[in-house]
Nucleic acid binder design. Structure first.
Length: 479
RNA sequence: GGCCCGUUGGUGAAAUGGUUAACACACCUGCCUUUCACGCAGGCAUUCACGGGUUCGAACCCCGUACGGGUCACCA
């Protein structure tokens, strides 16, 4: 009988949920869901210096925002807790001591400074294999009590594992120096804690970033030392920015925290969909998918080997598609905070915002974009763009007649409703003797300054009588 | 420098030895709309980084070169 699939996402609470972390979490989650397994959230807080207050909560909040729910963790418990590594210190201590007893680990009394100096010297001398700098050969000085515990790396062993993404990968133990498993402060290092916990928590599959490939042999050493069964690994490709560089938290050019997207008014469904495509190619003609679609099509055979590019245009497209499935109220709710923040609504009628959002419903790609769209078409600095001007002067006389007639019709209008404006356009067409493009385009340019834009009557209505007439006068005058 | 990994159209990305190399985004055209956008239909574009080799046959296997990336902490 196959044992139950158990996967985990193990963030360190050093900051907010990053795109790369979210992808790792998501793929583990998708695999668990597709296999009817369990998804565990474990907090790896062993780097006490880098932990930030609220980091853990923030990670959990935005995981939940994305729609990723876990089966076991610090907040809801589970049979394999505690789920915070700092609460498991005695466990690591016990396993580390067992290794010393077996002769597989030893105490190292070197100070960080000594090791650092040693390494620098080796590097300066261009020593080919700098790993020797991490092989502690000195005897413990009698006056020191602080020590780290190092794992004694076996000689001449080849560690091979079958990666779900890249196939067999192997490492020679001779390329790896004796590495620290317990720091002098009694806290385990990542590779040790990770291996111990993954085993104890019965993790069967590990989906993680490619940067962990070189950590794998170290973790395998721990499994072997205790005779534990290896888990299955899948190292996901890096996510790179549009310049082809690994997404770095310091990279200011790419917005890369989930929180930022949430605040910009992206939809969780859209982000979920987009992130699921980063390194996985589902069998499907469309890339616009729901969570259920994605779980159903998730297949480890289809994990990509080459780096995934964080393509903002694609994100925009996918989010826009999800946005189209929203009803009017939901769309308005998404845009509202941004309109308020941008002071767009001051002095406007209560229903005005709904009209604005509906006007751009077709082309909106994320909530905050409503403000940009507003600026483009409602900004006080009105001007006619080059393309539009060319159109106007290509048949100056006819456009002039059309514009004049349109202006006259609007001036005679008591109420600016979309129907009334529609009729005004129609009437202007009759007066000027034009129709179709020759009718609408001059009107459109006359009030928006551009040949492309939202529905004309609705735009006129929202702009309001004064603005529309001012713009028309300005364009007529310029002609 | 050592060790690992990658390289397919403008962009993202399939194809795991066998007819004209999917699909999506972008772009272009047509339809729809008295305009615009949405939507729908269609179209353009890659010979698979480069050089050898294996094979009846290679984007797919092997070797080498170039380029790109990852990693080498008492960080995770």
């Amino acid at each position: 009988m196959m044992s139950e699939v158990r996967v985990r996402y193990a963030p360190s609470p050093t900051g907010d949920l990053h795109i790369g972390n979210a992808r790792t979490a998501l793929f583990n989650y998708l695999f668990a869901k597709s296999q009817n397994g369990k998804f565990i959230l474990r907090i790896e807080d062993t780097d006490t210096a880098r932990n930030v207050a609220g980091g853990e909560q923030s990670q959990m909040n935005y995981l939940r925002w994305l729609g990723i729910e876990w089966d076991e963790s610090v907040d809801i418990g589970g049979d394999y807790g505690p789920y915070r590594q700092l609460e498991r210190l005695d466990i690591y201590q016990q396993y580390a001591e067992a290794l010393i007893e077996k002769g597989l680990a030893y105490k190292c009394y070197c100070t960080s400074e000594e090791l650092e100096a040693q390494r620098e010297q080796l590097e300066a001398n261009d020593v080919a294999n700098i790993h020797y700098s991490r092989r502690c050969l000195t005897h413990p000085p009698t006056d020191r009590t602080a020590y780290a515990i190092r794992f004694k790396v076996p000689t001449a062993i080849t560690y091979t594992f079958t990666d779900l993404v890249r196939g067999d990968i192997s490492f020679e133990s001779s390329d790896i120096g004796d590495w620290v498993i317990m720091k002098a402060n009694g806290i385990p290092t990542y590779n040790f804690a990770c291996a111990v916990d993954d085993h104890l928590m019965k993790i069967t599959h590990i989906f993680r970033g490619e940067e962990h490939i070189t950590n794998t042999p170290k973790q395998l050493m721990i499994y072997d030392a205790f005779n534990w069964e290896h888990p299955t690994y899948a190292h996901l490709t890096l996510i790179v920015n549009e310049a082809g560089k690994k997404l770095s938290k310091r990279d200011a050019d790419t917005v890369q925290f989930i929180e930022q997207y949430a605040k910009m008014g992206y939809l969780p469904e859209g982000m979920f969909n987009f992130i699921a495509l980063l390194g996985h190619a589902p069998v499907s003609d469309s890339e616009v998918l729901t969570e259920a679609d994605i779980i159903k099509t998730f297949d480890v055979q289809r994990l990509s080997k080459s780096p995934s590019t964080f393509d903002r245009a694609k994100l925009a497209f996918i989010n826009a598609q999800h946005l189209k499935t929203l009803d009017e109220d939901a769309r308005l709710e998404l845009c509202m905070p941004h309109l308020i923040d941008a002071d767009v609504l001051v002095g406007k009628a209560p229903t005005w915002a709904a009209g604005l959002v509906n006007l751009f419903a077709d082309r909106l790609t994320y909530g905050e974009e409503i403000v940009d769209l507003y600026d483009t078409f409602f900004d006080a600095d009105f001007s006619v763009d080059v393309e539009a001007k060319d159109f106007l002067i290509s048949s100056r006389e006819a456009t002039m007649q059309t514009l004049t007639a349109f202006k006259a019709e609007l001036e005679g209008l008591a109420n600016f409703t979309t129907d009334a404006v529609k009729n005004a356009i129609k009437a202007a067409g009759v007066t000027a003797g034009v129709k179709g493009k020759n009718l609408f385009m001059p009107c459109r340019i006359g009030i928006s300054g551009a040949m492309h834009g939202p529905d004309l009557p609705a735009l006129v209505t929202l702009l309001g009588r004064d603005v529309v007439l001012d713009r028309l006068k300005a364009v007529i005058k310029e002609l």
